[in-house]
């Protein structure tokens, strides 16, 4: 199995210093990602879900060292990229790409579609002639379902769904192995969202891609992912194959999260599980389990000690004493 691993993350932390002080004790941190370890196999889609502030985007950005992690190791195809210098890191960009949430702000409004998609080729494939690059851009547009005629137009002339297609075309221009999709369909209309989900699925097959799919939308994540990781306050609460997570969630947080989704059936308006309270202030985390302040089954032990992620079923891991 080990050969299949494309990504292996060990004890990754990303802490933001909010208040600097010479006295380390007095520094105030937000532990946006706190001791996170997991692996991703080649060709897999790992969904990352959680509520706002759970650290899912921070995790995605730290994995590519777009934001420098505070500590931990990231192995990409067996190599620890934490030891990479800036030149190696630049080369790594070819293999790992990040697709941002908002297709409105992730493209330069003054650049034409051609310039936007050709940029990664200009950077990494200096050997290509401009004719070759032009052909490649046309080909990429075709792959994402746009006509090559759009090349000379500007981002504002496109709808949200079309922009997301352009961003995806840029993302796959260098034939990456791993794509981090951060809320890639969240800003889109329902009827367009399905088109982009299908496109991502198609590309995955066509180019043998591995996805980290970050989203707050559990339905979309369930649909697209092989496995799902549930984050809460920067820590992994549960990680399991997608079907298992929904049919047999072990962590109380996962259960409330799934229970709070609407069933989408007006005849069967089951009481949604109402999770009381709100996410605690990340500057002032509970001492034990981060979920203990809202957990319906928390005990004194949970409030004192932090549970570690442990196996609770086949390929299923949860960090709860009672899972």
């Amino acid at each position: 199995m080990a050969n299949d691993q494309i990504l292996s993350v060990e004890h990754l932390c990303k802490h933001f210093v909010l208040k600097k002080s010479l006295n380390k004790e007095k520094q105030v941190y937000v532990k946006a990602v706190d001791d996170v370890s997991f692996t991703v196999s080649k060709g897999e889609t790992l969904g990352i879900v959680g509520e706002s502030g759970c650290g899912k985007s921070t995790l995605g950005r730290s994995l590519l060292r777009l934001w420098e992690p505070t500590s931990g190791d990231i192995y990409f195809n067996g190599e620890n990229i934490m030891s990479y210098d800036s030149r190696q890191l630049r080369e790594l960009r070819k293999d790992m790409q990040y697709i941002f949430q908002d297709p409105y702000s992730s493209m330069n409004p003054k650049m034409t579609i051609r310039d936007i998609i050709v940029e990664p080729l200009d950077n990494f494939h200096k050997e290509m002639s401009s004719k070759e690059k032009e052909d490649k851009v046309a080909h990429l547009l075709d792959i994402v379902g746009l006509s090559p005629d759009v090349m000379n137009r500007y981002p504002h002339e496109f709808s949200g769904g079309q922009r997301q297609r352009i961003v995806i075309a840029r993302g796959i221009a260098l034939n990456p192995q791993l794509l981090v999709c951060d809320e890639s369909v969240s800003a889109l209309d329902v009827s367009v969202q399905a088109q982009i989900i299908n496109l991502l699925q198609k590309l995955k097959k066509q180019f043998n891609l591995t996805y980290l799919f970050i989203s707050h939308d559990l339905r979309v994540v369930k649909f697209i992912s092989d496995r799902i990781m549930v984050l809460y306050l920067g820590q992994i609460m549960e990680i399991a194959p997608s079907d298992t997570l929904f049919s047999d969630p072990k962590h109380p947080y996962t259960r409330s999260l799934i229970g709070s989704i609407s069933k989408g059936n007006p005849r069967n308006r089951q009481e949604r599980v109402i999770l009381e309270g709100e996410i605690p202030n990340p500057m002032n985390l509970p001492k034990g389990c981060p979920f203990s302040t809202r957990c319906p089954v928390a005990t004194d032990k949970c409030r004192e000690q932090k549970p570690l992620l442990r196996p609770v079923g086949e390929n299923q891991y949860a960090s709860c004493f009672y899972a």
Partner: peptide, 25 residues
């Protein structure tokens, strides 16, 4: 079309039904 394009929690992978094109401005 709208109802069909929503991913459900039931088991099915593969392709989602879509409505072609987008909302005209």
């Amino acid at each position: 079309g709208l109802l069909a394009t929503m991913p459900t929690l039931e088991d099915h992978k593969g392709e989602l039904p879509t409505i072609q094109g987008g909302v005209p401005s």
